[in-house]
Computed example of a mutant assay.
Amino acid sequence: MAGKQGKDLALSMLRVLPRLSLGNIRDNPGSRKSPKRGRGQHGGNKHGAGNKGSGQRQNYMRLGYETGNTPFYLRFSKEPYYKGHHLRREYPPLSLKTLQLYIDTNRLDISKPIDLISLINTGLYNINVHWKHAGVHLTDEDAHCFEAKINIEVQWASEPVIAAIEKNGGVITTAYYDIKCLHAMCNTKQFFSRGEPIPRRLLPPTDCLEYYSSASMRGYLADPEKISQERLVLAQKYGYELPKIEEDSDYEMLCERKDPRQLFYGLEPGWVVNLKDKVILKPKAEYLKEFYAS
């Protein structure tokens, strides 16, 4: 067939190819379907309804029901420790080691006070209010390696953490935020875009009022004179010389505090931030000023 062309080539190919028959043609796509399984001898005749009892009726058993056995949650005695556990506030931990890493990598600006919003803006620390998160728990991991001089506000801290920060000339404050304020702080852009006035911070509940009023825990409701005394007591206890904040070049930054009703630095409760027009609207009515006043 090498020298043939056209009709001769086609005829020669037909002579070589096998004849067309039912044995060498393919079925059309979709013409053959797999047969369904019949009833059969062992196919069963219950139509997927199961055996006797609730299995053959479509009343699905409730969650935790163990078909007559004593349920798992009733086999053990009562533990009062877990009473109201779903209502307890949680504080996601943040170690001093991680905080030092944020500062060394320029995630945090130590020339300004650090609060919950500053930590969330790093993009590395998050809290979820729906999971009962109530703020930052600063832990003492690698406290001996912490070297930064900062003014930080957290929601929970222990005595070694306070000593590690004040040893370097820094200042720490423990402050409480209610749920409405936490929603506004977790996503400030979304909050300001809604055009709502900045809420005033509520006072802590009775179960943690003592903690945030304690000078030894550096509570934001404590007396400043008692805090100065406790700073000296803690320095003597841990054996370090307490730096004098009054002679520090960053004295104004270290002394900057939020008002007990204030939520954001530089913004007062009751103000409305308009992101579109880039203006701040302040209340003018006297009853509004009185309501948002500390």
Rank of each mutant, 00 (worst) to 15 (best):
S54G: 10
I120Y: 03
G135K: 12
Q100I: 04
L94F: 13
V161Q: 02
C208Y: 05
V233W: 00
V171C: 05
Y91F: 09
V136R: 01
R19Q: 05
D248A: 14
R62E: 11
G6Q: 10
R231I: 02
Y220V: 00
H42S: 11
F191Q: 11
K258R: 13
Y125C: 07
L108D: 12
G43T: 00
P160N: 00
K78L: 11
G44K: 11
P269H: 03
H85T: 08
Y251M: 14
C145H: 11
P243T: 02
R200I: 01
H130D: 15
P243R: 06
E247C: 03
D140I: 00
C145R: 14
S249H: 09
R107E: 09
R200M: 04
M13F: 02
S21W: 14
T70M: 03
A293G: 12
L119P: 15
H86K: 12
H86F: 10
K4C: 05
G270C: 06
A222W: 01
P260H: 13
K189Q: 05
R19E: 06
Y287D: 13
P29W: 11
R37A: 07
G6T: 05
T173G: 06
A148W: 01
G43Q: 00
Y73M: 04
A2R: 07
S214I: 00
L101C: 06
I25S: 15
T139Y: 12
M217E: 13
R194C: 09
W131R: 08
N121W: 01
Y82G: 11
L116Q: 10
P18Y: 02
L119C: 15
W271H: 02
D8Q: 14
I227W: 07
R218Y: 06
C208T: 08
F291H: 10
Y91Q: 02
T188E: 12
S216L: 03
L94G: 15
K180T: 10
H183D: 11
L281H: 06
A215Y: 06
L87I: 10
R26A: 06
H144L: 03
N51H: 12
N187Y: 09
P71Y: 00
M217Y: 11
L203R: 13
K112H: 15
Y211D: 04
A134Y: 13
L87A: 12
P197H: 06
I162Q: 12
E153P: 03
D115P: 02
D115W: 02
V233D: 02
C255R: 12
G3A: 14
V233Y: 00
A2L: 11
G266N: 10
K52Q: 15
P283Y: 02
E252A: 07
D277I: 02
K278W: 08
G266S: 15
P224Q: 04
L17Y: 05
Y176M: 05
